[in-house]
């Protein structure tokens, strides 16, 4: 049968490194904290979902024109909007679960879902 060798220091180091690597990979992949943050966009033309980790510039058609949304570095913002008041553009970047903004005239609603970093359940404004 197999004649087992005497294991030497580096064998243990390599095995320990491998176990640590597996543990690190498992933690980073499966820990609930790293649940993917997503950008949900509701428009007159349907519902869209994007991964906040992949940068993109997106155009959405609405009743009064095109709302342009940018996803960058894990945050989402409205770059430009055909609306007059520009509330959506001014509300800045959305980054944590529950953040949202909307362009009412163009019927575009953005919401970040996923890991809820805010400690409140809802916001009164």
């Amino acid at each position: 049968m197999l004649k087992l060798p005497r294991l030497r220091p580096f064998d243990y180091i390599a095995a320990a490194f491998a176990v640590a690597l597996i543990a690190a990979a498992a933690v980073s992949a499966y820990s609930s904290g790293s649940e993917a943050s997503r950008l949900k966009v509701q428009t007159a033309g349907g519902e869209f979902v994007y991964d906040l980790r992949s940068d993109a510039t997106l155009d959405f058609d609405g009743p009064i024109g095109i709302t342009r949304i940018e996803i960058k570095d894990g945050t989402a913002r409205v770059l430009s909007s055909p609306c007059r008041q520009q509330i959506c553009v001014n509300s800045g970047a959305l980054d944590s679960g529950g953040d949202w903004t909307a362009c009412l005239p163009n019927r575009v609603f953005l919401e970040v879902t996923g890991a809820d970093e805010t400690e409140v359940d809802a916001l009164s404004y």
């Binding site: 001014n90 805010t118 400690e119 409140v120 359940d121 809802a122 916001l123 009164s124 404004y125």
Partner: peptide, 18 residues
């Protein structure tokens, strides 16, 4: 429930209190 109250001077989502 923990309900945030909007901060009057900051962007939407920033709370002044809960």
């Amino acid at each position: 429930w923990r309900i945030g109250i909007q901060h009057p001077d900051r962007s939407r989502g920033d709370t002044i209190g809960i």
